[in-house]
């Protein structure tokens, strides 16, 4: 084996003995973080994009869910008296 290949083998041995475990753990950590960030973007990305688009004067792409207004709801006195609480 020539001296260049000996240098390569020294690098491989040094990595395996001293650095491999630490590097693997750091790579795993980075991939977990990236996966987590990816999930968040997947979940909220379209909503954020739509919000920005509407703020810029565009039309919403996502259909709003239909919510009952106060008048349409069952509770006609939303700010009325609080519940009486337990009987004494």
């Amino acid at each position: 084996m020539n001296a260049f290949l000996s240098l390569r083998d020294e690098d491989l041995a040094a990595f395996t003995e001293e650095r491999s475990t630490a590097v693997r753990e750091r790579v795993e950590g980075s991939l977990r973080s990236a996966e987590h960030i990816g999930s968040i973007i997947e979940l909220f990305g379209p909503l954020m994009a739509d919000t920005l688009s509407v703020m810029g004067g565009g039309n919403p792409l996502l259909e709003d869910e239909h919510y009952l207004t106060l008048q349409e709801g069952d509770d006609n006195d939303p700010y009325g008296a609080p519940p009486r609480g337990p009987n004494r």
């Binding site: 390569r8 690098d11 491989l12 990595f15 395996t16 630490a22 590097v23 693997r24």
Partner: peptide, 24 residues
């Protein structure tokens, strides 16, 4: 591949700590 990547990073960067960071 990790060891081989590290060895190639050593070829280019010549410093063990930099090669380790590059491998990651």
């Amino acid at each position: 591949y990790a060891g081989r990547i590290y060895s190639k990073a050593m070829t280019m960067l010549h410093r063990a700590d930099e090669a380790e960071d590059a491998t990651q």
